[in-house]
Design a protein around this nucleic acid. Structure first.
Length: 549
RNA sequence: GUGCCCGUAGCUCAAUUGGAUAGAGCAACAGCCUUCUAAGCUGUAGGUUGCGCGUUCGAUUCGCGCCGGGCAUACCA
């Protein structure tokens, strides 16, 4: 419908010798303003030298529209041109939802753009904590959205199992191990405080007894066991949330393959790296940043910047056209250096999209849930899932814009009642399933969508609640596109809420299963279409769409 | 100090990427179950969009300056 209007308006503009480039249609906020609106007249007014309403007049006069499809064209306000659609043609269009089913909303990209989405990327030094949840969920939703929008998506997890953090992990476990043997062994400063360290130590003790007290000065074994334990924990948690990655990219491979040294040499060649006080520095000031940065410490170990730059360069070399990084706001400092570095190596960083999400705070009703890193009692993501369930975790973490601080109300998420927004959506789906079951019991075949399609008479669908619902359902593909291009999955939750609302209203006003067979079949078709949209949307968000509640 | 994010109804947040009369949920108040799921529906009330300039036909949205909150400013990641 939009394309139809776009062509018609462009045709009109061309006949007037106006530029036909900037024609954009929006859905008016207010229903009284019609189904679609365009502001071309106001955009053109200045260059044409006429007032916007006159321009609009001219455009409308030259419009050739099929009155079977568009029932009204009005000029309103400062110069908007509003269009109203014939409900029959809208309903007719909605048949594609039945035809496409679980693919409705998916873009049919001819040539797929290769995208890499990297997220979570927590090093294996402990279980995921509840604050990680936002990134876990957000990244998964964005990856799904991009896929639906037609990208060929690789989901990636980048990790480092060497270096400072892992050394601390090994030392921490070792200390707990010695303590387990009854010794008064000092716990390292800045060590990992969590109870899981004791657990790992205990497992090691059970396997190896006290044999490792003196034989492992580097704590290599402890580190390795710690890594295995933590990774198993992380992957298990991700699995519980239905989140999966295609590639686990080990930073270590950048060293063994010589990529790290390659990058340093590249920088040196371009006079972007120099030695100073035993360290290697990146001449970031030459790249427009405020200060130079150490990339290799005087100890010989690189700082995170160097491998990050090498890693991002590899992403481009691996052929990704779009590189999406998802970071928490606390890691924001890494970004400018890395981007500048990659750019200096000759890659187009316009194709890197960095999503930064703000921090999460947890409340339980009125009570603030404290989560200090010093404190041994971190609130793990697993505990959060135990408490509120996977669906609520998904929905709550994704329902707010990433760049606003998120308040997660555990009590609300846990509540099995109408207060909880997850249920509102799921309830609509379950309710539809129930209606379809009921119809099936009455001997109507609701499973066969081809049959439903053939018996669907779009002229029967006239009620306001029906037509409103159908119009909303037809927005779904565009919503997906918008959410994907803005990397904002929270807009999908807003939309799905509206769909659920429109359905509940329809349900309340109109009986589906009844004596009028044609009407019933049409309404059953509406139910199926609504169910499809909600299910597809939930799939993207990682929320289940239950048949029963 | 500097950089990034935020400030919208009592609370938590939206707002179609600059559009027309700023919307939802929760909380409050008043209604609706003999019928396919009341985890639902309908209505009422609630606002100087932190403050002030500016940009233009038009600003919650863009720019500048204040005020307030968060994060970051490492030879940690």
């Amino acid at each position: 419908m939009k394309n139809y209007l776009l062509e018609a308006v462009r045709e009109s503009l061309r006949s007037l010798n106006y530029s036909a480039e900037n024609v954009i249609f929006d859905k008016p906020k207010i229903a009284a303003h019609g189904d679609l609106t365009t502001n071309v007249a106001m955009i053109l007014a200045k260059s044409v030298g006429k007032n916007p309403r006159d321009v609009a007049q001219a455009i409308v006069r030259n419009l050739k529209l099929d009155p079977q499809r568009v029932t009204a064209v009005e000029i309103a306000g400062p110069g908007f041109i509003n269009f109203r659609f014939a409900s029959v043609s809208v309903v007719e269009e909605s048949k594609k939802i039945l035809r496409e089913g679980m693919n409705f909303g998916k873009a049919s990209a001819v040539e797929k753009v290769k995208a890499n989405v990297e997220w979570v990327s927590a090093n294996p030094t402990g279980p995921l904590h509840s604050g990680h949840g936002r990134q876990v969920i957000l990244g998964a939703a964005i990856a799904n959205l991009l896929e639906w929008a037609g990208y060929d998506v690789t989901r990636e997890y980048y990790f480092n199992n060497a270096g400072n953090q892992m050394r601390k992990l090994g030392e921490s476990i070792y200390a707990r191990y010695r303590q387990l043997l009854g010794e008064d062994y000092p716990f390292p400063e800045e060590g990992y405080q969590g109870d899981y360290i004791r657990e790992i130590a205990k497992e090691i003790f059970e396997d190896k007894g006290d044999s490792l007290c003196e034989t492992d000065p580097e704590r290599n074994y402890f580190r390795k066991r710690g890594e295995e334990w933590c990774f198993a924990s992380i992957r298990k948690t991700l699995g519980r949330l239905g989140v999966h990655h295609d590639v686990f990219y080990n930073e270590d491979s950048l060293y063994t393959s010589g990529k790290i040294n390659e990058v340093i040499e590249e920088f040196r060649k371009r006079n972007l790296a120099y030695d100073h006080e035993g360290a290697v520095w990146l001449r970031a000031t030459a790249l427009g940043l405020d200060k130079d940065r150490v990339i290799v410490k005087s100890t010989g170990e690189p700082t995170y910047r160097l491998p990050d730059i090498a890693y991002h360069r590899e992403k481009f070399r691996r052929g990704f056209d779009l590189v999406v990084d998802i970071f928490g706001a606390d890691h924001i400092a890494t970004i400018p250096d890395v981007l500048a570095g990659v750019k200096a190596l000759g890659f187009n960083t316009d194709n890197v999209k960095v999503i930064i999400h703000q921090m999460v705070s947890f409340v339980s009703g009125d009570e603030v849930v404290k989560m200090s890193k010093r404190n041994a009692k971190v609130y793990t993501l697993d505990e959060l899932i135990d408490e509120v369930g996977s669906d609520a975790v998904h929905y709550f973490f994704v329902m707010r814009s990433a760049n606003t601080h998120l308040e997660f109300d555990i009590e609300l998420a846990k509540e099995q009642s109408e207060k909880n927004p997850v249920y509102y959506l799921q309830y609509a789906h379950a309710r539809i399933a129930s209606i379809l079951r009921f119809a099936q019991e009455q001997g109507i075949n609701v499973e066969d969508s081809a049959l439903l399609l053939s018996t669907f008479n779009s002229e029967i669908v006239k009620e306001k609640e029906e037509v409103d619902l159908v119009k909303l359902l037809l927005d779904f593909p565009e919503i997906i596109q918008n959410c994907a291009s803005s990397y904002e999955p929270h807009r999908l939750t807003t939309y799905l809420r509206e769909v659920a609302e429109a359905f509940h209203r329809f349900y309340h006003e109109h009986r589906v299963v009844g004596d009028n067979k044609n009407l019933m079949l049409a309404r059953l078709a509406l139910c199926r279409m609504t169910k499809t949209v909600i299910a597809n949307g939930c799939m993207i968000l990682g929320v289940s769409a239950p048949e029963k509640m």
